[in-house]
Structures are given as C-alpha cells and as structure tokens.
Design a protein around this nucleic acid. Structure first.
Length: 803
RNA sequence: GCGGAUGUGGCGGAAUUGGCAGACGCGCUGGUCUUAGGAACCAGUGUCAACGACGUGGGGGUUCAAGUCCCUUCAUCCGCACCA
C-alpha cells in the first residue's frame, strides 16, 4: 500500500518554508557550518534531474549538521545573467529581465517541491542591481590595484555569438555555448590579471581539502614550468631574440630558432629580411586559421625560413637560422624558441621536414635519432656540450643557468600556461562595466557612490555589426561626464562575463541584504570560509579558479578574512539518460523532475538519486530502480503497523542499530550515500523478519533516514513524538555495541573456504583449533594429510595448508 | 601525445589494513492471496559437464591467502592539447 506522499510532502514543505524553519541563527557564538552548492542558471527548461543530485547530497549533510548542533547556512540563489535569456529576448522581443524572473519563479517552486533545506530568505540573484552593485564595486577595486586593464590583443571571437570569449570558453576551436567556429580578432578588451595570482593559486591548494583530482586539474591548467629565458644575439645587429626553455641543459643542441608569426622581430628587422613577401604571406595565412584549423593541422608542420638574418647560439657561438612557424605560439613564453631537434619531438619533426641539423646532446640507451627525438628528461648524461659534458641532466640544468646568469645571457624563469582573463563581453544581459573613457584622463572608474550602474532599458538586444555591444547604440546612456575632470566622456559599453557574479556570490549569502558593504565584517568573520562546496568537475578550471582569484584579491585588500574561499570541494557525477548517454532533447532521453515528484514523490526522488551509484561517478537513470526506492518508502510507512511499545532498543536489534548509526554517520561524511540507503533497506528487512519494531528503534531509524527522506520521516515521527526530527540530536552509537561477541570464522584448507565455525570474539589459536578438531567435516578433510602450516588471523580467518 | 579516472552477475552496484567476492536494489523464475495486477507477501537466482570445479577486462608475479599489492597488456570515458 502506498502512503499519500502528495499530501504529506505538501504539509511539511508549507511548514518549513512558511515558518522559515531552516533560517540560520544570528548567534555568532555557535559553531557554524556553511554548505554550498553551485547556484543554478535559471534556464527556460527548468530544473534538470542532475541538479537535485548535488543539492540532495549537501542537503543531507546540512540536515545532519543541524542535528549535530551547528548553526547551518545552506543558501540558494540564481546565477541569472547569461546568453540563453538574451538570445530568447532577441528572438521574442521580451526583456531578458522578465524571462529571468519567470524562470526563477519556476525554479524556486521546483526546488521547494523537493523539500530542500535551502534558506529562501537569503536568496540572491546576480541580475539584481542591489547584488551587482557589489560585483561592479569589486571590479573598481581590481582596477584601482592595476589588476583590471584594457588591452588590444588577439582574442577568441565567436562568429555565432559575436562576442569575445575566454580561453576557457573555447572548446576544440569552437564556442562552448553555440558551437560556432572561433576566430582570432584584434579587439580592445578589459582583462583581469589572474596571472599575478598563479603561484598562490597553486600553493594555497595545500591549505584546502579539495578532492585530489580537482587540485591536479587546477595545477595542470595553471601549468607552471621551470626553465630559463635565454638571449640569442642576431648576427651583426643590435637586436636579441629572447626565448624560454625548460631544457636549458640542451642549449648546445639548439641548431635553429623559431618565432611565432606574430613576433615583433619580423617587423623590426624587415629591412634586413630578404624574403619579406614570403614571410608576410605565411603570416596572413596563419592569422586566417582558426584555433580549430591550427590544431587540426598539428600533424604537419609548416614554416618559412627568415632569410637575411641569423642568430648566434650563445654557447657554441655558431650561426643558426631563424624560422617562422605557427607551431610556436605568441601567447606562451616569449613567442620564440630555440629548437633542439634531437630532444624535442616537435622540433625534430620540423627539422626532418626542412632538413635542419640534429645534434644529440644527451646520451641515453636505445636512442635512435633517425626515427624520433629523445625526450626523456632527468636521465642521461650530457655529450657534445662543452663544459656540460659528463653531467646528469639535472646537474647540467643548474650549471648552465648559473653560467647564463653570470654572463648576462639568460636567467632562471618560471612560466605559466594560465593567461589573463578576458573580461569584456559585447552583450546586453550582463553587469555594465563601471568605467568611463575621457579624452583627457583616459579610463576612469565611476565614483563608488554612483553604484550600481544600472543596465539601461533598450529596445533591441542584438549585438552590433562589428561585434559591438548592444549598449553601443544607447547614445544617451553612453554620454556622461568624466568623474575626474568633468569634461564630456563616454561609458564603457561592454558588459561583464557570466563568471563575474558567480565569483563572489558565496560571500553575499552571509549577509544578503546589506546595502553598505558586500557583507558585514562580523558575518564574513563568522561564516568564512565555506566549509563544504559541491559542484561539477566542469567548473574546475573556470568558476572555481576565477572565484579563488577574486577571493584572494579581496583578502589582499582586507575585505575577507580567509585566503581561500572554500575549505572542502567535492564533485558529483552526471546523471545520464536510461541509454547511458548524456540527456539531451535530440536524444529524447530527458527525465523531467516534475514528473518524478508527481509520480513518486520528493522523498523517493531524493532517495533514488542517492542510491543510484557512487556519488562521484556518472550514473544512468532507471525507471525500474526508482520503483524499488518507492517500494522501500512504502515499507517504511507500513512499519507503523508492526510498531510496539519500548523505550530502549530490544536485544535483537540493538547491535544492528548501533552499527547502522555508525555506518550511516560515516557514509554521509564520505558521500557514500548509496551504501547508507542499502543500510536502511537492510534494517527494514530485518524489522519485517521479526514483524516488530519498538518506538525507540523506530525513532532512531527515522532520525537516520530523515536527511534523505525528510517528509515521510517527519510525518511518521510526528505520530509518536511532539517534537520534530529537525529538533532532535543526531543519534549516537556505542562502539562496544557495534562489536559481536561471537563471530563466524571461515576455515580454509589450502586457501579454499570449507566451513565456517562459531567462535567467541578474540579467541586464541589454541581455542579455535579445539573447535576445528571437533568439526566432523574439517576433521575428515584433514585426517591422514600432512599439515604443513596453519595460519590464524584473529577474528578473520583460519587457513590450514595440507599436502 | 600529456593528465585524470573506470573495468566485478542479465542490469545499477557492495566488499577497513590483502582474509567467506557478489551486500542492497532492479530484473528474472516459482509460489501464496486476488475478479484483476506494472499491487502485496514468501522462496530462489554468479557460471558450468553441480556433493565438485571455475569465477572481479587479458597475461604474468608476490603471498598460506589477491577485486585489493607489483609488472605487463587491452578497452572505455573525461579533461587538456604544437605550452618549448
């Protein structure tokens, strides 16, 4: 028989959200716990079944923490700027604000229908001027500290969205959002100097409890490498070519140089270059290539020798040719390299193709330089390398760097793959960048007293022809006066990227209605840092890195009290369609959360998503399995039919309950929710086996299950108690009562289990042996055989080796 | 190419330090009750030539004992990708 989940869930949700049961307390002397999930983008499709996986997980932890006596903060909000609303606005001529508001209302109802512990009283919305006032304020602080700057540089330009993108938003040469090709375009952009924080963004990971794979991915993304910068003289000129290398030890093997097509030396020495036409042609060809084409063509190297100039290898003194090739990137290192074809596979390939000399400088076993480069680092001995001969690679690196530094031809240098953050978007639906351009004073931030700089109302949301922001057409709004000199000036028309609002939202939750500061000092002191942040792996190199950067900056200017925003970061796996593929409209395998709540109830939905598999892994949806969870809750409901009196655990169940408290308590901390649910199911099976459960047992069981299935458990609890589960304390277990006095010991003969015998806990080998000798089956197996060895591992196993 | 994972019944998945492989759920088989069953309950369910043997992607090794440790190999997924 099914319980009436519709009525019960509605009843408890009304109580929770109307009475604001979950609000954090303002008592800053209590121990606190701040749990955070990534706030959703309120898309028109509504909630996805993937959202509740993460939300339920931290909801469980939040509810447990509250029962453990913590002052809990588990907030929710909406990351509501973004392209889908804007694109919808362009198509349907509805203001994005209106669509966003509708979507948020829909999302909020959906979230409430799942009974989350969220504090809707603290709800935030990144598109609310009272919120983005502080996003703009942070930008101005960044500007004041020189961390926001305008630069004209080649940017990734999406031909579909007509907007500049950050490197992180370009996937396989196409736009992450719309899939259109991305090309390079020169544009004046606001940039944020995240590279200044590269070292700290790596090092401070040590102070956090992020999952190891998250730390590794961030470190790889930042891409720190140690090496040297070396100056190569241009023969007969007063010019030098600066290169970066991680293998300064191989300098004697540098037989040619390569510069990126965009390298300034080409223009600088154009009068000396004899094949300028050829070079220009090559430059043009490579600038037309999109990122996608460049990586597509990465098998076949192209390039042109720059004739008329040569460089001098500073160690050998020999003249070496300079080439231009797009396998060297202007954006990394110095945009120029020394090529050591013997020990770098790209240089090797290039040298082979163009017949350039290959000189081996590191000796190694089984090296065949006619086939491939020998790139094994840190092993091998230097040869053909003058004063480095005979040294190990690591030693040679040190020696050559000190030689370079002494002779002023090079320095030790650390490089990063991370680049500065392109912060401008030529779009309407984003935070206006609070800057004014004055012919006299240059860029000037608007006075902080004028914040927020509100988005102007516009009629037309289409981007301009030349990739201009829609705001560029708002001449009234653009015209202003310079805050510095008072002369006529123009506002910046670009807006901020979607990552802006989400880079600090967790701070606003601490004090969401403050109109004097982004949050009060006391609130920041008390709630910082976020204790536990769960989100998707896809945000590891974008949102997570950006927000750590902003937070470190806010720490530096004394706004926030901690170096790191998040103490612990975990991630959830994706929920796939029932065919094992990612849910998508085109595949027709989308599951709508509303349907699940309607057909099975929120509690079943929550329990199922926790039972579906290991939290960290991808898991396919299964309508059959969700029925199993529905059945389980029906059986929980029917436990009241076999309920008997009793205010202590009965002897039959005492062990099981203590063990379950331990197991579930530990599982929740380790996010092993699936095995917790299995524990609940086993318990219910046991109660039905004896056809009884007493009130004490029932109460504990309901408390343990409550974070997973809050509605049904509160309803059942209300029938036997006049307090709610939320007001009770998390059950405690007695370690001694989780241990059995008598255990089943497997006995093996030659490693195969033949019998299990009952023995008292902690029996000695002699005692166990006596029992074995009285066992007929074992006796007959051993008799007449030669016992070679007997192994007894206390309370685990007894193995007899016979011949 | 580099980095990160994963591989266990028909399916989703369990399994402290190496110590009874397959918990829990789905599905399936048989039964009970029912006018009926996409309901409930009971029993069974790794494989096979079944009182035994074999079984955690494949091959090898260490060990009294390996899903777990070591070597090697294959497959799949994810992230990055000419980063010097």
């Amino acid at each position: 028989m099914s319980y009436n989940y519709k009525e019960i869930e509605k009843k408890w949700q009304e109580k929770w959200y109307k009475e604001r049961t979950f609000n954090a307390k303002d008592d800053y002397t209590m121990k606190k716990w701040y749990g955070l999930i990534e706030f959703p983008y309120p898309s028109g499709q509504g909630l996805h079944v993937g959202h509740p996986r993460s939300y339920t997980a931290l909801d469980i932890i939040a509810r447990k923490r509250r029962m453990e006596g913590y002052n809990v903060l588990y907030p929710i909000g909406f990351d509501a700027f973004g392209l889908p609303a804007e694109n919808y606005a362009i198509k349907n001529h509805i203001h994005p604000r209106i669509i966003t508001e509708q979507n948020i209302n829909h999302f909020r109802e959906q979230l409430k229908s799942l009974g989350f512990f969220f504090f809707f009283s603290r709800e935030i919305n990144t598109t609310d001027p009272n919120y983005y006032k502080w996003t703009q304020w942070i930008f101005i602080q960044l500007y004041k500290k020189g961390l926001a700057y305008k630069a004209t540089m080649p940017i990734n330009y999406c031909t579909g969205c007509k907007v500049g993108l950050a490197n992180e938003e370009v996937v396989n040469g196409v736009c992450e959002r719309c899939g259109s090709p991305v090309v390079q375009k020169e544009k004046s952009q606001w940039m944020l100097k995240i590279t200044d924080y590269a070292e700290r963004l790596i090092n401070d990971l040590d102070d956090t409890e992020f999952l190891e794979k998250i730390k590794i991915q961030q470190k790889n993304w930042i891409g720190r490498s140690e090496g040297a910068e070396v100056k190569f003289k241009i023969d007969g000129e007063d010019e030098e070519l600066l290169i970066y290398t991680t293998r300064p030890d191989t300098l004697f093997g540098a037989t040619y140089m390569v510069v990126a097509p965009e390298h300034p030396i080409i223009d600088k020495l154009s009068s000396k270059i004899t094949n300028m036409d050829e070079i220009i042609e090559y430059k043009n060809k490579s600038s037309l290539k999109s990122d996608f084409e460049r990586s597509e063509l990465n098998k076949e190297k192209t390039g042109v020798e720059i004739k008329g100039i040569t460089a001098i290898n500073p160690l050998t003194g020999k003249q070496i040719p300079i080439w231009v090739s797009d396998y060297v990137l202007i954006t990394y290192g110095t945009g120029a390299i020394m090529a050591v074809p013997a020990h770098d596979s790209r240089d090797f390939e290039f040298a082979k193709k163009f017949g350039l000399p290959i000189i081996q400088v590191v000796d190694g076993k089984n090296v065949d330089l006619s086939k491939e480069a020998y790139t094994d680092v840190e092993t091998g001995v230097l040869i053909n390398s003058g004063f480095l001969n005979g040294m190990q690679v690591s030693e040679a690196k040190e020696k050559v760097i000190s030689y370079l530094e002494k002779n002023n031809i090079g320095t030790k240098k650390v490089n990063y793959k991370l680049r500065d953050w392109v912060f401008s978007r030529q779009r309407y639906w984003g935070e206006p960048i609070p800057m004014v351009y004055c012919e006299e004073c240059g860029w000037v931030p608007i006075p902080e007293s004028e914040l927020p700089l509100v988005l102007p109302e516009v009629e037309n949301f289409e981007p301009g022809e030349n990739g201009e922001s829609p705001l560029a057409k708002q001449t009234d709004w653009i015209s202003t006066t310079c805050p510095h000199c008072g002369k006529p000036a123009k506002r910046e028309t670009d807006t901020m990227p979607q990552w802006a609002g989400s880079s600090w939202y967790f701070l606003r939750y601490m004090d969401p209605h403050n109109d004097k500061e982004l949050a009060s000092k006391q609130a920041l002191e008390y709630w910082s840092p976020v204790d536990w942040y769960n989100g998707g792996m896809e945000h590891t190199t974008l949102h997570l890195l950006y927000s750590r950067f902003w937070h470190k900056f806010l720490y530096d200017i004394g706004v926030v009290p901690t170096k790191e925003p998040y103490f612990k970061r975990t991630s959830h796996g994706m929920i796939l369609g029932d065919n094992g593929e990612k849910m998508s409209k085109s595949k027709g395998n989308i599951v709508n959360p509303d349907d699940i709540v309607r057909d099975f109830g929120a509690d079943t939905f929550r329990v199922y998503e926790m039972f579906i598999g290991p939290f960290d892994g991808a898991a396919p949806w299964s309508m059959d399995s969700i029925r199993g969870c529905s059945k389980f809750l029906d059986r929980v409901w029917s436990l009241q039919d076999i309920l008997v009196e009793g205010d202590t655990y009965s002897p039959e169940f005492e062990k099981m309950i203590h063990k379950a408290i331990k197991k579930v308590s530990e599982d929740i901390e380790e996010m092993k929710f699936n095995t917790s649910v299995a524990t609940f199911m086993t318990m219910v099976n046991e109660f039905y086996k004896l056809k009884r459960i007493n009130i004490a047992e029932f109460k504990t069981f309901l408390q343990l299950l409550n974070p997973f299935a809050p509605h049904i458990t509160e309803e059942l609890y209300s029938k036997i108690s006049n307090v709610t589960i939320a007001e009770t304390s998390w059950p405690k277990y007695d370690e001694s009562k989780t241990i059995d006095e008598s255990i089943e010991l497997p006995v093996q003969i030659n490693g195969k289990v033949k019998q299990t015998i009952q023995i008292p806990l902690d029996s000695t080998q002699e005692d166990v042996k006596k029992i074995i000798e009285q066992n007929d089956v074992l006796k007959s197996l051993i008799s007449g055989k030669n016992i070679i060895k007997e192994i007894y591992v206390k309370n685990k196993i007894y193995n007899i080796v016979i011949k």
